[in-house]
Computed example of a mutant assay.
Amino acid sequence: MIQPLAYIHPEAKIAQNVVIEPFVTIHKDVEIGEGTWIGSNVTIMDGARIGKNCKIYPGAVISGEPQDLKFEGEVTTAEIGDNTTIRECVTINRGTKDRYKTVVGKNCLIQAYSHIAHDCFVGDNCIFSNSSTLAGHITVGDYVVLAGMVAVHQFCTIGSHAFVAGGTLVRKDVPPFIKAAREPIAYAGINSVGLRRRGFTSEQINEVQNIYRVLFVQNSNLSKAIDIIEAEYEATEVRDEILTFVRNSNRGIVKGFSQGKSSI
């Protein structure tokens, strides 16, 4: 169902059962999958690739040009996975020649006034609470939860199943399975509630807790902590995901308890 007060470029590719409310503007190079609902006053610009059964609420702008002075008009995309909900006034910019696309995965909830900048890759099943902001070139794993008004510095990485507390400024990489909070940002325990909800066993949760106790609580330097974990903990999918993340961190990971006390 397409309301007559909406503008849709004749070359946009819209599935037959998409609902488009009044005052929507859809540009030329746009694809929208079956069952998606587009609320009134949404603007969908060139490069948007929107999946099936998505919901996009009034005032959102999808695939706007990057707010990057290096952008030279290259052909790039902003891709939204199936079953993702984008609430009021969210802005998602398309990519630049760095990654050539911005991606938001499947089954995500991006709440009102959030911003996802150019060249961000967001995994599946993520929740961004109101006014969460990603600068450019950020990678977010699956099942990540950002509470309200989280701001993430460009080029940071947030690991899968992490939780970042409201109002946190993320200037360092956040490893998988943890909670991060405080100012400056620091380790605040493991995301045990989230892990239980997603079917992690008690043994796996205990393993995560023990590994991060070595990394963040025992005050070993990082390279020594990695050596201890490799020597004392059997190789598992969980252990290896943590170690791979820590080794590959470009910005450095968040600090532990004793190093990241609040300055307030």
Rank of each mutant, 00 (worst) to 15 (best):
F128C: 03
H137F: 12
G141E: 04
I127L: 14
V122Y: 09
V145T: 14
N125C: 11
S129V: 14
D119L: 07
I116W: 03
G166T: 01
V122G: 02
K106F: 07
H115W: 01
G105H: 04
G105F: 05
T133C: 15
G159K: 11
D119K: 11
V145F: 07
G141L: 04
N130R: 03
D119F: 09
S114M: 02
T139N: 14
S129G: 10
H161M: 14
F155L: 13
T157P: 00
S132K: 02
D119V: 10
Q154V: 05
F121G: 06
Q111A: 09
I116G: 00
H153C: 12
V140R: 06
C120R: 01
G148W: 00
S129M: 14
Y113V: 02
G141I: 01
S131Q: 13
I116M: 08
L134Y: 04
D124K: 02
G123Y: 08
D119T: 08
L146C: 08
C120D: 13
N125R: 11
V122E: 04
F163W: 12
I158T: 11
K106S: 06
H137R: 10
I158M: 13
L146G: 01
H161N: 13
V164C: 03
S114R: 00
H153L: 12
V144H: 06
S132V: 11
G136Y: 03
D124R: 06
G159Q: 12
G141V: 07
S114K: 00
T133N: 15
D124N: 12
A135L: 08
I110H: 00
M149D: 06
G136N: 09
T133A: 15
V152S: 08
I116H: 07
T157C: 12
C120F: 07
A162G: 09
C120H: 03
G136A: 14
G105C: 00
D124V: 10
G123M: 10
G123A: 08
A135C: 13
V150Y: 05
V150H: 07
Q154P: 08
I116K: 01
S131R: 12
V164D: 04
C120S: 08
V144F: 09
A162S: 15
L134R: 05
H115R: 04
C108M: 05
N130V: 13
N125A: 11
F121E: 15
F163Q: 05
L109N: 04
I158D: 07
F163V: 03
V144K: 05
I138H: 00
Q111I: 12
C156Q: 10
K106D: 07
F128G: 02
K106L: 00
C108W: 02
V140L: 13
S114L: 06
I110N: 07
F163A: 08
M149R: 12
G123V: 05
A135S: 15
S129R: 03
H153K: 14
G141Y: 05
A135I: 05
K106R: 14
S114D: 00
T139H: 14
G159N: 09
V152F: 04
F128Y: 12
G166N: 06
A147V: 02
